[in-house]
Amino acid sequence: MAEESDLLRFLQERSDGNLLSLTAQREAARQFDCSLRDIEETALSHSILPERYQRNGLLPAQQLLLFHAKVAIIGSGGLGGRVAELLARMGVGNIFLTDPDIFNESNLNRQNFCTTETLGDYKVEVVARELKKINPILNIEMTKGLFSETSVSAADLIVDGLDSIEDRRHLSQLCMKYCRPLIHAAVNKWYGQVGVEQLKSNLIAQLFPLQAQALSPPQVLPPTVALLAAMQAAEVCKLILGQNSPLTAAWLHCDLLNCEYHLLPYK
Protein backbone atom coordinates (compact mmCIF):
# COMPACT_ATOMS: atom_id res chain seq x y z
CA MET A 1 0.00 0.00 0.00
CA ALA A 2 2.84 2.35 0.92
CA GLU A 3 4.29 1.58 -2.47
CA GLU A 4 1.02 2.36 -4.22
CA SER A 5 0.75 5.73 -2.53
CA ASP A 6 4.39 6.39 -3.50
CA LEU A 7 3.53 5.48 -7.08
CA LEU A 8 0.49 7.72 -7.01
CA ARG A 9 2.53 10.61 -5.65
CA PHE A 10 5.10 10.04 -8.41
CA LEU A 11 2.39 10.06 -11.07
CA GLN A 12 0.80 13.19 -9.66
CA GLU A 13 4.15 14.97 -9.53
CA ARG A 14 5.01 13.97 -13.07
CA SER A 15 1.62 14.82 -14.58
CA ASP A 16 1.11 18.10 -16.37
CA GLY A 17 -2.37 19.25 -15.45
CA ASN A 18 -3.95 15.81 -15.32
CA LEU A 19 -1.96 14.52 -18.32
CA LEU A 20 0.74 11.91 -18.00
CA SER A 21 3.34 11.42 -20.72
CA LEU A 22 4.52 8.04 -21.96
CA THR A 23 8.04 8.93 -20.77
CA ALA A 24 6.75 9.46 -17.24
CA GLN A 25 4.79 6.20 -17.41
CA ARG A 26 7.94 4.34 -18.47
CA GLU A 27 9.95 5.90 -15.66
CA ALA A 28 7.28 4.95 -13.15
CA ALA A 29 7.22 1.39 -14.46
CA ARG A 30 11.01 1.11 -14.01
CA GLN A 31 11.13 2.81 -10.63
CA PHE A 32 8.23 0.88 -9.11
CA ASP A 33 8.90 -2.38 -10.95
CA CYS A 34 5.46 -2.69 -12.44
CA SER A 35 3.94 -2.84 -15.90
CA LEU A 36 2.74 0.06 -18.01
CA ARG A 37 -0.67 -1.54 -17.68
CA ASP A 38 -0.51 -1.22 -13.88
CA ILE A 39 0.60 2.39 -14.23
CA GLU A 40 -2.32 3.20 -16.54
CA GLU A 41 -4.83 1.61 -14.18
CA THR A 42 -3.48 3.53 -11.19
CA ALA A 43 -3.41 6.78 -13.16
CA LEU A 44 -6.94 6.48 -14.53
CA SER A 45 -8.28 5.39 -11.13
CA HIS A 46 -7.03 8.70 -9.77
CA SER A 47 -8.25 10.92 -12.61
CA ILE A 48 -4.85 11.15 -14.27
CA LEU A 49 -5.07 10.74 -18.04
CA PRO A 50 -2.28 9.17 -20.11
CA GLU A 51 -1.47 11.76 -22.77
CA ARG A 52 -2.19 9.27 -25.56
CA TYR A 53 -5.91 9.52 -24.72
CA GLN A 54 -6.05 13.32 -24.53
CA ARG A 55 -7.64 13.70 -27.96
CA ASN A 56 -10.24 11.01 -27.25
CA GLY A 57 -12.03 13.72 -25.32
CA LEU A 58 -13.24 11.23 -22.71
CA LEU A 59 -13.07 11.58 -18.94
CA PRO A 60 -10.54 9.47 -17.02
CA ALA A 61 -13.50 7.55 -15.52
CA GLN A 62 -14.69 6.75 -19.05
CA GLN A 63 -11.19 5.71 -20.11
CA LEU A 64 -11.16 3.43 -17.07
CA LEU A 65 -14.34 1.75 -18.34
CA LEU A 66 -12.62 1.18 -21.69
CA PHE A 67 -9.50 -0.07 -19.88
CA HIS A 68 -11.48 -2.76 -18.02
CA ALA A 69 -13.63 -3.79 -21.01
CA LYS A 70 -13.13 -7.18 -22.63
CA VAL A 71 -13.88 -7.28 -26.34
CA ALA A 72 -13.69 -10.40 -28.50
CA ILE A 73 -13.06 -9.70 -32.17
CA ILE A 74 -14.04 -12.73 -34.21
CA GLY A 75 -12.05 -12.60 -37.42
CA SER A 76 -8.89 -10.54 -37.92
CA GLY A 77 -9.40 -9.65 -41.57
CA GLY A 78 -10.80 -6.49 -43.17
CA LEU A 79 -13.33 -5.62 -40.49
CA GLY A 80 -11.73 -7.33 -37.48
CA GLY A 81 -8.19 -6.04 -38.00
CA ARG A 82 -9.39 -2.47 -38.39
CA VAL A 83 -11.76 -2.63 -35.43
CA ALA A 84 -8.85 -4.03 -33.39
CA GLU A 85 -6.63 -1.08 -34.28
CA LEU A 86 -9.33 1.47 -33.47
CA LEU A 87 -10.10 -0.14 -30.10
CA ALA A 88 -6.39 -0.35 -29.26
CA ARG A 89 -5.95 3.35 -29.99
CA MET A 90 -9.07 4.27 -28.00
CA GLY A 91 -7.73 2.36 -25.01
CA VAL A 92 -9.94 -0.74 -24.79
CA GLY A 93 -7.83 -2.75 -22.38
CA ASN A 94 -8.60 -6.38 -23.19
CA ILE A 95 -8.79 -7.52 -26.80
CA PHE A 96 -9.30 -11.16 -27.73
CA LEU A 97 -8.44 -12.03 -31.34
CA THR A 98 -9.66 -15.14 -33.13
CA ASP A 99 -8.87 -16.13 -36.71
CA PRO A 100 -7.68 -19.38 -38.29
CA ASP A 101 -6.13 -17.84 -41.42
CA ILE A 102 -2.84 -16.51 -42.70
CA PHE A 103 -2.52 -13.32 -44.76
CA ASN A 104 -2.66 -13.91 -48.50
CA GLU A 105 -2.37 -11.59 -51.50
CA SER A 106 -6.12 -11.06 -51.86
CA ASN A 107 -6.07 -9.46 -48.39
CA LEU A 108 -3.63 -6.72 -49.41
CA ASN A 109 -6.33 -4.39 -50.75
CA ARG A 110 -8.09 -3.83 -47.44
CA GLN A 111 -6.69 -5.58 -44.39
CA ASN A 112 -4.55 -3.35 -42.22
CA PHE A 113 -1.35 -5.05 -41.04
CA CYS A 114 -1.43 -7.18 -44.22
CA THR A 115 1.71 -6.09 -46.08
CA THR A 116 4.05 -7.72 -48.55
CA GLU A 117 6.16 -8.59 -45.50
CA THR A 118 3.41 -10.31 -43.51
CA LEU A 119 2.05 -12.50 -46.33
CA GLY A 120 1.96 -16.09 -45.10
CA ASP A 121 1.91 -15.09 -41.42
CA TYR A 122 -1.00 -15.87 -39.11
CA LYS A 123 -3.32 -12.86 -38.98
CA VAL A 124 -3.81 -12.98 -35.22
CA GLU A 125 -0.05 -13.05 -34.60
CA VAL A 126 0.59 -10.04 -36.83
CA VAL A 127 -2.37 -8.05 -35.49
CA ALA A 128 -1.45 -8.80 -31.87
CA ARG A 129 2.17 -7.74 -32.46
CA GLU A 130 1.18 -4.49 -34.18
CA LEU A 131 -1.45 -3.61 -31.58
CA LYS A 132 1.14 -3.96 -28.83
CA LYS A 133 3.36 -1.51 -30.70
CA ILE A 134 0.49 0.98 -30.81
CA ASN A 135 -0.57 0.51 -27.20
CA PRO A 136 1.68 -1.57 -24.93
CA ILE A 137 -0.82 -1.66 -22.05
CA LEU A 138 -3.13 -3.97 -23.97
CA ASN A 139 -3.97 -7.40 -22.69
CA ILE A 140 -4.24 -9.34 -25.94
CA GLU A 141 -5.22 -12.97 -26.18
CA MET A 142 -5.21 -14.75 -29.50
CA THR A 143 -6.67 -17.94 -30.89
CA LYS A 144 -5.37 -19.39 -34.14
CA GLY A 145 -8.55 -21.16 -35.09
CA LEU A 146 -12.30 -20.88 -35.23
CA PHE A 147 -14.21 -19.23 -32.41
CA SER A 148 -15.60 -21.33 -29.61
CA GLU A 149 -18.01 -20.94 -26.69
CA THR A 150 -15.08 -19.69 -24.62
CA SER A 151 -14.35 -16.92 -27.16
CA VAL A 152 -17.84 -15.58 -26.46
CA SER A 153 -18.21 -16.27 -22.73
CA ALA A 154 -14.82 -14.73 -21.83
CA ALA A 155 -15.71 -11.29 -23.26
CA ASP A 156 -18.24 -8.54 -22.49
CA LEU A 157 -18.86 -7.69 -26.14
CA ILE A 158 -18.39 -9.57 -29.39
CA VAL A 159 -17.41 -7.99 -32.72
CA ASP A 160 -18.44 -9.83 -35.89
CA GLY A 161 -15.54 -9.76 -38.35
CA LEU A 162 -16.60 -12.96 -40.10
CA ASP A 163 -17.24 -13.55 -43.79
CA SER A 164 -19.45 -16.63 -43.77
CA ILE A 165 -23.21 -16.76 -43.18
CA GLU A 166 -23.04 -20.13 -41.44
CA ASP A 167 -20.36 -18.89 -39.01
CA ARG A 168 -22.36 -15.73 -38.33
CA ARG A 169 -25.47 -17.73 -37.45
CA HIS A 170 -23.41 -19.89 -35.09
CA LEU A 171 -21.76 -16.87 -33.47
CA SER A 172 -25.15 -15.22 -33.03
CA GLN A 173 -26.49 -18.32 -31.27
CA LEU A 174 -23.53 -18.32 -28.86
CA CYS A 175 -24.00 -14.60 -28.15
CA MET A 176 -27.69 -15.25 -27.36
CA LYS A 177 -26.73 -18.16 -25.10
CA TYR A 178 -24.28 -16.07 -23.08
CA CYS A 179 -26.27 -12.79 -23.33
CA ARG A 180 -23.46 -10.93 -25.05
CA PRO A 181 -24.15 -8.06 -27.46
CA LEU A 182 -22.95 -8.86 -30.99
CA ILE A 183 -21.73 -5.90 -33.01
CA HIS A 184 -22.39 -7.01 -36.56
CA ALA A 185 -21.15 -5.60 -39.83
CA ALA A 186 -20.79 -7.01 -43.32
CA VAL A 187 -19.65 -5.62 -46.64
CA ASN A 188 -19.92 -6.27 -50.36
CA LYS A 189 -18.50 -3.94 -53.00
CA TRP A 190 -19.77 -0.39 -52.21
CA TYR A 191 -22.37 -1.66 -49.77
CA GLY A 192 -22.46 -2.58 -46.13
CA GLN A 193 -24.62 -3.02 -43.09
CA VAL A 194 -24.07 -2.59 -39.38
CA GLY A 195 -26.18 -3.26 -36.31
CA VAL A 196 -26.06 -4.42 -32.71
CA GLU A 197 -27.73 -7.71 -31.91
CA GLN A 198 -28.89 -7.98 -28.35
CA LEU A 199 -31.10 -10.56 -26.73
CA LYS A 200 -34.37 -10.92 -28.69
CA SER A 201 -33.45 -8.48 -31.46
CA ASN A 202 -32.74 -11.40 -33.83
CA LEU A 203 -30.74 -9.18 -36.16
CA ILE A 204 -28.67 -11.94 -37.74
CA ALA A 205 -31.74 -14.10 -38.44
CA GLN A 206 -33.38 -11.10 -40.15
CA LEU A 207 -30.38 -10.14 -42.27
CA PHE A 208 -29.57 -13.74 -43.19
CA PRO A 209 -32.86 -15.60 -43.73
CA LEU A 210 -32.68 -19.35 -44.05
CA GLN A 211 -32.66 -19.46 -47.86
CA ALA A 212 -29.87 -16.86 -48.06
CA GLN A 213 -26.55 -17.70 -49.67
CA ALA A 214 -23.86 -15.03 -49.98
CA LEU A 215 -21.97 -14.60 -53.22
CA SER A 216 -18.68 -16.32 -52.73
CA PRO A 217 -16.04 -14.97 -52.47
CA PRO A 218 -17.40 -11.49 -51.70
CA GLN A 219 -15.93 -8.46 -53.41
CA VAL A 220 -14.79 -5.99 -50.81
CA LEU A 221 -13.76 -2.40 -51.49
CA PRO A 222 -11.37 -0.92 -48.90
CA PRO A 223 -13.35 2.28 -48.14
CA THR A 224 -16.47 0.23 -47.45
CA VAL A 225 -14.59 -1.96 -44.99
CA ALA A 226 -12.98 1.02 -43.28
CA LEU A 227 -16.32 2.80 -42.86
CA LEU A 228 -18.16 -0.21 -41.48
CA ALA A 229 -15.29 -1.16 -39.16
CA ALA A 230 -15.24 2.40 -37.81
CA MET A 231 -18.96 2.16 -37.13
CA GLN A 232 -18.46 -1.13 -35.30
CA ALA A 233 -15.71 0.41 -33.16
CA ALA A 234 -17.97 3.37 -32.34
CA GLU A 235 -20.76 0.99 -31.27
CA VAL A 236 -18.34 -0.94 -29.06
CA CYS A 237 -17.25 2.30 -27.43
CA LYS A 238 -20.84 3.44 -26.85
CA LEU A 239 -21.88 0.11 -25.35
CA ILE A 240 -18.92 0.18 -22.95
CA LEU A 241 -19.67 3.77 -21.94
CA GLY A 242 -23.40 3.09 -21.54
CA GLN A 243 -24.40 5.52 -24.30
CA ASN A 244 -27.64 4.83 -26.13
CA SER A 245 -27.38 3.94 -29.79
CA PRO A 246 -30.04 3.84 -32.50
CA LEU A 247 -28.28 0.70 -33.76
CA THR A 248 -29.68 -1.35 -30.88
CA ALA A 249 -33.18 -0.82 -32.33
CA ALA A 250 -32.39 -0.62 -36.03
CA TRP A 251 -29.70 -1.60 -38.51
CA LEU A 252 -27.99 0.73 -40.92
CA HIS A 253 -27.72 -0.01 -44.62
CA CYS A 254 -24.82 1.88 -46.21
CA ASP A 255 -24.38 2.57 -49.92
CA LEU A 256 -21.11 4.39 -50.57
CA LEU A 257 -21.72 4.50 -54.33
CA ASN A 258 -24.89 6.60 -54.07
CA CYS A 259 -24.11 8.07 -50.63
CA GLU A 260 -27.35 6.62 -49.23
CA TYR A 261 -27.68 5.57 -45.61
CA HIS A 262 -30.90 3.99 -44.38
CA LEU A 263 -31.72 3.22 -40.75
CA LEU A 264 -34.14 0.28 -40.81
CA PRO A 265 -36.12 -0.98 -37.83
CA TYR A 266 -35.78 -4.54 -36.55
CA LYS A 267 -38.74 -6.82 -37.06
Partner: peptide
Protein backbone atom coordinates in the same frame (compact mmCIF):
# COMPACT_ATOMS: atom_id res chain seq x y z
CA UNK B 1 -41.07 -0.29 -43.90
CA UNK B 2 -42.37 -3.49 -42.28
CA UNK B 3 -40.66 -6.84 -42.72
CA UNK B 4 -42.38 -9.29 -45.06
CA UNK B 5 -41.82 -12.70 -46.70
CA UNK B 6 -41.70 -14.12 -50.22
CA UNK B 7 -45.32 -15.26 -49.87
CA UNK B 8 -46.67 -11.94 -48.59
CA UNK B 9 -49.46 -10.66 -50.84
CA UNK B 10 -48.96 -7.14 -52.21
CA UNK B 11 -51.70 -4.49 -52.06
CA UNK B 12 -52.43 -1.35 -54.07
CA UNK B 13 -49.83 1.43 -53.49
CA UNK B 14 -47.52 -0.76 -51.41
CA UNK B 15 -43.84 0.16 -51.37
CA UNK B 16 -41.73 -2.98 -51.62
CA UNK B 17 -38.03 -2.74 -50.61
CA UNK B 18 -35.63 -5.54 -51.56
CA UNK B 19 -32.17 -5.78 -49.93
CA UNK B 20 -29.54 -8.34 -50.90
CA UNK B 21 -27.62 -10.51 -48.47
CA UNK B 22 -24.33 -8.80 -47.68
CA UNK B 23 -21.85 -11.18 -46.16
CA UNK B 24 -18.22 -10.12 -46.63
CA UNK B 25 -15.84 -9.07 -43.90
Amino acid sequence: SRHCQFDTVLRENDILAIFPVIGGG
